[in-house]
Structure formats: structure tokens, C-alpha cells
């Protein structure tokens, strides 16, 4: 799987710097006593395995500016096919900004500017010839707050297929709606009230409806921006099971504030801090053997 395991440079002096920054009084004590590959914030390239063999997205040196403020600093990372990549990090670390780069949702924010290259299946998605709407149709997105349209359950799921003319006949459309709701694990709960308003569903059901809506356009990738933060534990478990099933057919990028969730649902984890990608690698490895001091500080709850 792993192409070129990039060895991040170790910074001797940087370690003391990071120690001061996070209140170790310059003593630079490591709670685990573990030797870190890197301890610096000013590294540039992240620790861990940036590239993967079967990449859907390849991001190289991606920076995002909102006006004068740089929200993402030269991020280089691949997103693998049929795998869940979790983006973790404290609030404002750039993980959501990173997610929104992938379907060019940052374009909708006035003053936002993206530099670097991002390719989807080898083609530059920020190229001038790229039709943004067509690009977004290939990428499903699920938001933090469930945001169903003020339409019926049926019309919510049928919205994407209708605007992209994916169904030739009414029966085709019925079939897409059925399959999408089925895959989102919602069919049994809503099959008798497809024509009632989506707002009437519970929060968890609404979120699964939003997932069904995203699946209905048969995307290649699904982006999830803290999809469970507004849900209770049972609804969260539902959505996590769903992610596990969807992984067989889609690449998924999930932004989450819950490290337990990242550990449960993802195969790769990327840790962002202050707009930089600090470390990325197999989830098991990142959580059991973080190679960057900042990653360890975060996952052990020492800050963030």
C-alpha cells in the first residue's frame, strides 16, 4: 500500500522550542519516555506516510488563505480509495478547511484563495477547465448539522439525481431513492412516509437522510464534516456502522473532534495543528505509536 514512506527530518533544536511552546518549561520531558521522530512545529513536511498506492485525491502543497489569514499551510497528503481517512485536531486547526478544498466548497467563501495542486483521479480539480458543479457531483458531502431540504424525504434523496438527470424514468428514480435509503440504513424507518417532510425526522435520521442524499448521485468520494457532533450516542453508532459499510465502495474523509471515533472508523488518520498537517499514517500506528510529539500531546489529551 505504502509508496514511499517519507521520513520526516528530526529537529534537535525544534524539540526544545516545542517544549517551551507547550509549557514544559523547557525541560522537554516526554510523558511516555518515547523517542519521537519529530517534535517541531516548523517542519514543513509531515511525519508519517503521506502517499498511498491507490490514491483518489492527491494534494500537494495545498495552502488556503481567507483574506490575509492563512488557514492551511502547504499540506501534502493522499486520500486512498476504499478507505476512511480521519482528520483530527483542535478547533481551528484547518481540518475542515482541508475537507472543503476537496470539493471546492471554499470557492463559495468570499476572499478565499487556494494554492497548490489537488488531483482527483489524476486530474487537477482546480484547473480552469474543471466545471465546479460537475466536480461536486462526484463528491458527496455530509455536514456537521443535518441539513435536509424543506422537501419530502423522497424529494431530498431525488434532488441530486434530478439536477444531474441520472434517472430516465420515474421507475429509475424510485429505484435510486430506494437503493440510497437502503444503503444509508434508513429505508425501513421511512418507507411508509416517503412523502412527508424530512424536517419531521429525528436528528439521527436526518443525518442518515443527508448521507442517502449524497449517495444518490453515486459519488466516488464522501466528505464528512463532523457528521456526528449533533447526534446522540445511538445515532452516532448508527452513522459509524454506516461508514464501515460504505468504506467497501467509497473513499471517505471524515473530520471529527472525537479521537475515539477516528480510531473506530478510520484506517488512516491525519493530525492537523495550526493549519499544518503534523502527522499522517495508519490509524493504529498513529494512536499507539505517534511519531510526532504534537500528535502524542493531542491524542493523550495534553492539549486541544
Amino acid at each position: 500500500m505504502i509508496h514511499e514512506p517519507r521520513r520526516a527530518e528530526s529537529h534537535g533544536a525544534g524539540g526544545a522550542d516545542a517544549g517551551r511552546r507547550f509549557g514544559d518549561g523547557g525541560l522537554n520531558l516526554k510523558p511516555s519516555g518515547r523517542q519521537h521522530v519529530s517534535e517541531s512545529l516548523e517542519g514543513g513536511s509531515p511525519v508519517g506516510e503521506v502517499s498511498v498506492a491507490d490514491a483518489v485525491f492527491s494534494c500537494r502543497d495545498v495552502s488556503v488563505f481567507y483574506g490575509d489569514k492563512q488557514a492551511l499551510k502547504s499540506v501534502t497528503i493522499d486520500v486512498a480509495r476504499r478507505q476512511v481517512l480521519a482528520a483530527i485536531g483542535p478547533s481551528g486547526c484547518g481540518k475542515s478547511t482541508f475537507l472543503r478544498c476537496l470539493n471546492r466548497m471554499n470557492d463559495t467563501i468570499p476572499g478565499a484563495r487556494v494554492t497548490g495542486t489537488i488531483t482527483l483521479d489524476g486530474r487537477d480539480i482546480y484547473s480552469k477547465r474543471q466545471d465546479v458543479a460537475q466536480l461536486r457531483a462526484r463528491i458527496g458531502m455530509v455536514f456537521q448539522k443535518p441539513n435536509p431540504f424543506p422537501k419530502s424525504i423522497y424529494d431530498n434523496v431525488a434532488y441530486g439525481p434530478r439536477i444531474h438527470r441520472l434517472a430516465r424514468t420515474r421507475a429509475d428514480l424510485d429505484d435510486i431513492v430506494f437503493t440510497s435509503l437502503q444503503r444509508a440504513g434508513l429505508w425501513d424507518e421511512v418507507k411508509d412516509r416517503l412523502s412527508s417532510l424530512a424536517i419531521g425526522l429525528s436528528g439521527g435520521q436526518q443525518q442518515r437522510l443527508c448521507i442517502a442524499r449524497a449517495l444518490a448521485v453515486q459519488p466516488e468520494v464522501i466528505l464528512m464534516d463532523e457528521p456526528c457532533s449533533a447526534l446522540d450516542p445511538i445515532a452516532t453508532a448508527h452513522v459509524e456502522d454506516l461508514i464501515e459499510q460504505l468504506r467497501a465502495s467509497y473513499a471517505i474523509v471524515i473530520v471529527t473532534h472525537s479521537m475515539q471515533q477516528a480510531a473506530r472508523v478510520s484506517q488512516r488518520t491525519a493530525y492537523f495543528y495550526m493549519g499544518q498537517l503534523i502527522e499522517v499514517g495508519d490509524t493504529d500506528r498513529v494512536f499507539t505509536n505517534p511519531q510526532h510529539r504534537l500528535t502524542e500531546d493531542y491524542i493523550t489529551g495534553r492539549f486541544g
Binding site: M105, Q134, L135, R136, Y159, I163, H164, C210
Partner: peptide
């Protein structure tokens, strides 16, 4: 945003 992200103009 949800509609935009679906690829709607």
C-alpha cells in the same frame, strides 16, 4: 451549502 455541494449551480 448542501445543495451547492451536491453539484447544483
Amino acid at each position: 451549502d448542501a445543495s451547492t455541494a451536491m453539484g447544483a449551480y
